[in-house]
Design a protein around this nucleic acid. Structure first.
Lengths: 218, 218
DNA sequence: CGTGTCAGTGAACAAGTGTTCACAAGGTAC
DNA sequence: GTACCTTGTGAACACTTGTTCACTGACACG
């Protein structure tokens, strides 16, 4: 064994990537309690186990790190959405499925969800805008999925967007309620998801009436 | 004119109250851009025009100031709600009325709304909890009002709460959309409020169907 | 008029901040 | 095997932060 790579060493790129990820993880960990704007570069490097100045080898700025963190968070969010988009046969099926998947993801990636929820209206404009854009995108995807359901196939795209926005809003509210539930309390979690299902059902019940009711202008 | 009170002077209590208010106003002004957790005592005193140490004559803490600010914000919110609660005759009337009042209040007290929206999931736990409690209270009030409307008079209180939560959520989302609209752009504002009305209508359209549809368990 | 109260001052502190710079060490490339 | 490149180090900088303390001066009260 003349090789001097005891298994934790590796190519330089890999090592760099590893401490970069350590910085991201450290920040995400700290963001469970503080908010991003009150997070200091030195705190991040300290909990990542490197010296403050080394930070600049990986990011220009705390803001740049924040944006990468948003990207990372939305990768898991998009993965969730992809899972949830599988064949929306009926409203009921879609509702049960979506809520269940949401609960699972929030449970498993609560740091990402917590970060996004906190920064959605937080102090840092760049993060706010990135998040807002992603959520809008999400609503658009949902709208095109909805268009395949009975009754909704003849809705205008504007109304579909509004309906999707309503549902996304409810889901976001549910996610936030889940984050607030005492960690790992299964009954609280069950209550929140039951409430979410009922609320989504309330929304869908109006669907068949919408156009026959006239949908008054403005 | 031997009196040395040129009009800005007054009794000592009044003067104290005035600088106290100056501190609150300064903080609220700064909170339009930063978030509370990244707001420093010295910044507040600086923009209020007093020396940092004088802060302690009025508050023990920045957190105490924050809580007072929440109180102040929710006084205007409660005033809004009181106005909006006047006789909910029909759904349509209620919707038009509520949205219009909301738009007016957000327009006039945008600093308060902005502060609340930002701290609802912000870093400071005490503020978060205070806000959450107020919003729950709001939803409860709305639920009791809703109980007087046709169809809803025979709903269970749990379902009324869920419906109210749905509507409050939509209103909160609308308020946040209004805060994002380019300042004073009347067409953007009109679009947001039109969207809000349509969304609320979508919700109410399901109401007559709810119980006849079975409202399946959990 | 005289005395005490108290909102606001200014100096001082220990600690934390972002960012710079010169430097060490070791993997990379020739 | 040697020279380079790059990740991480440590000292140093100029600031800002919260909080303390002894103080001043004008209003309040007797």
């Amino acid at each position: 064994m003349h090789s001097r790579t005891p298994e934790n060493a590796a190519t330089r790129q890999e090592r760099k990537q590893r401490t970069r990820q350590a910085l991201l993880d450290a920040a995400l960990e700290l963001l469970k309690e503080r908010s991003f704007s009150s997070l200091s570069l030195r705190q991040v490097t300290r909990t990542a186990g490197i010296v403050p100045t080394a930070f600049y080898r990986h990011f220009d700025d705390m803001e740049e790190l924040g944006l990468v963190l948003i990207d990372e968070s939305f990768r898991t969010l998009r993965a969730m959405i992809r899972t949830a988009r599988a064949d929306p046969r009926t409203y009921e099926h879609m509702i049960r499925n979506s809520v269940e998947i949401l609960v699972g993801y929030v449970h498993e990636h609560d740091a990402h969800f917590r970060f996004v929820a906190r920064e959605r209206f937080g102090g840092v404009a760049a993060l706010r805008h990135a998040i807002r854009a992603e959520i809008r995108l999400f609503a658009s995807d949902l709208a095109t999925d909805l268009a395949r359901l009975p009754h909704l196939d003849r809705w205008s795209t504007e109304d579909l967007q509004l309906l999707a926005g309503l549902m996304v809003n409810t889901m976001v509210g549910t996610a936030e309620a889940l984050l607030d539930a005492p960690a790992g309390d299964p009954t609280a979690e069950a209550e929140v998801s039951a409430a979410a299902r009922r609320q989504l059902r309330m929304i869908t019940l109006g669907v068949p009436q919408w156009h026959s009711a006239g949908a008054p202008p403005s």
